[in-house]
Design a protein around this nucleic acid. Structure first.
Lengths: 219, 219, 219, 219
DNA sequence: CATGAATGAGGGTTCATTCAT
DNA sequence: GATGAATGAACCCTCATTCAT
């Protein structure tokens, strides 16, 4: 009956009960990303999830609690996934870096979850609690993983020495920017379509050379 | 702490007329950035500007018109400034690039205007008209300038050949990210203070090497 | 004194759903008539109907939509009634005329609906759409019916020849005047109470003689 | 500079001061009639009179005081005029009646003042004080004059005996109706233009016959 | 569990009124 | 006297939240 029903090819008859919370947070996520937290009405969330407004309150105490759940739900399943990804090629820092960045895009940036960075950026100040949670559970672990990659690469001599905490932030920026862009201007303005793949390749090429120890004819 | 606190008990009633719009848009900008457009109450804007709520409507037809004005006012004065900056060192692409990026931070990112990217990113979908204006008058000209710098550098042989439209987007990302960060998580979470200067230097160093033609072939 | 006073302390919440619109338009009608459209606050309408302000918006999109509904609701049920009335004595034009005029008073003028002429007269200019609707669905059919009565009477020789469209307008005027009077000066000023029945009889007597073909030539 | 200036062919240079109140009440009258009291903004009144909003308060204490003045100004000059009119033909009741009715239309109904009945009818309940004033100074004297005409006619045998207070009310109704109509539906709807003169003649003819003692073949 | 009618606090907006110029 | 910028109370309308069914 709703869009959510089509996610699973053929959902078993009355298995709805357990799936409900996810359907609700999914609907909420997309609307929060589209319009922002404050501008999203719970009516719309309920409508998009195919339930009545009152039903939302069976699962979440308030709009803010729904927001918290949206972030938690959106974040938890990916955390593990990400960690596994990197163990598969732990010996080659360059490949690890590539895997990390492209993996982030494939798993997060290009999916529904790609809106979360925009959502969190917009609402961090209004919801410090959620921001804290996100920082602790997503940003910090993510940065730690990347930093480890960089540290290993430097140790292995394939990356030149560099301030890795700072570099981590810098290196993530173009990815985040792409995600933000796709959920803001790209949606509402006639903007020359940016091919994510070309963008990623260009970007990876750029930073790889930027990190390479061979470079440096200059000084 | 607010502008109102610094005014004399009874400021002259008429003489402010010309200054008012800027005072109002300044107050609105900071609140829109802090809380988002929808979550900002016009009461607060008025209070921060030290006027009553009704006064806002002497200068702006609606909340949305105020938003448009905030963007316009915030953007127009910097556009010229930026263009001049680049003509001072038009012969050295590397210096131009450095000037452009550091100049952006000095003139925009580190000032009150640094919140505009966050604001526009958050609200682009809700206000396509404003987004269009911003795209046409800020993003597109900005990208054109940067692209020209890159093209010149490539022509001069100081940058290696690269897809400049894509690179432009990528190269701006860390700057924007820094601005966004400072107006979101940095405000509300206990986050290790990032020194903007170190960030910028690290970043410039990285992309300069990434763009350098001397960087070794493949391995 | 108001409808709310007569309800039980906690009226069943759901079962009222079908009755609500009529309760609301009834409350709105009386207030619009009393104070005019612009001077009527939706709070009052809601209070008089015994609901909260927000409830109005479950049934009507706006204050203006409520106004339109007030007219529609007030008018539709009477239209049919009126038409039937006249078929009962279609052979005697004088009786038809009397039936029409006294019927109008009994069914409309003396009831709650008697305020509608005042309301529409006051607001026609402000709400041309509603005025159009009223003109098309009430005034025009009403005049058509009366005109037919006159035409028949003239054809039958019981009325002298006369410009029926104009006469129609004239003949309705004293009725409308009575209705207007009762909803304006009669309410607020110490005014010698006018007995509607005496007024109607005097009036009918007057126009009947005025229409009579036997009335002497000039002098 | 304003429409009001064109009323007098060539107003003396600075003779404005005395004329101001009338210009203001004239502007207010037309707007009150057009839109009703509550829906009229003082901005508009001031604009139509060609003065600033604040100036209104130099002459009237409040919006309600302006309303009172509008009625007073509109009514006073006509009261005398009317009384004189009737003394010119005090010997012929039929002519007096005709003079009275046609005179009312010529002096009031067809002029700017023709909107006052609509205005007073609409606002009587909201402003009992003004209504009282109007009743005492306009309606009651007017009815008295008419009643005298009727009484004389009856005494003279040119009108048949009738309850004159009631008849007075009835006889005025078509005139008032015409005035109301012209300021409501006639302005906003495509309505077959009613020729006032034809209307008046038809109406006078009708009531004259209705009042004639010769009529009465019936019973 | 689920619904959706009902609520009412709070938002954006208007406008009569004031007052420094 | 005349102005018009400023005010703030009060309006219409929205929407998160509740609760009887």
């Amino acid at each position: 009956m709703t869009a959510a029903d089509q996610t699973q090819p053929a959902p078993p008859r009355r298995r709805r009960k357990e799936a409900r919370p996810q359907e609700l947070t999914a609907a909420a996520l997309s609307l929060f990303v589209e319009k922002g937290f404050a501008a999203t009405r719970l009516d719309e969330v309920a409508a998009r999830a195919g339930v009545s407004k009152g039903t939302l309150y069976l699962y979440f105490d308030s709009k803010e609690a729904l927001f918290m759940a949206v972030i938690r739900e959106g974040v938890l399943p990916v955390l593990e996934e990400g960690r596994k990804l990197l163990t598969t090629c732990a010996d080659d820092p360059v490949r690890m870096l590539r895997e990390y960045l492209f993996g982030w895009w494939a798993l997060i940036g290009s999916t529904e979850l790609g809106g979360i960075p925009k959502l969190m950026t917009s609402e961090a100040q209004n919801f410090p609690g959620v921001a804290d949670y996100y920082l602790k559970n997503v940003i910090t672990p993510g940065k730690a993983m990347m930093r480890e990659i960089l540290d290993r690469g430097i140790a292995a001599g394939v990356f030149r020495p560099i301030d890795t905490p700072t570099a981590t932030q810098i290196l993530m920026a173009p990815l985040l920017h792409l995600a933000l862009w796709r959920h803001s201007f790209a949606v509402c303005c006639q903007v020359p379509d940016m091919d994510p793949n070309a963008y990623l390749e260009c970007y990876f090429d750029l930073i790889l050379k930027g990190l390479s120890p061979q470079s440096g004819g200059r000084a």
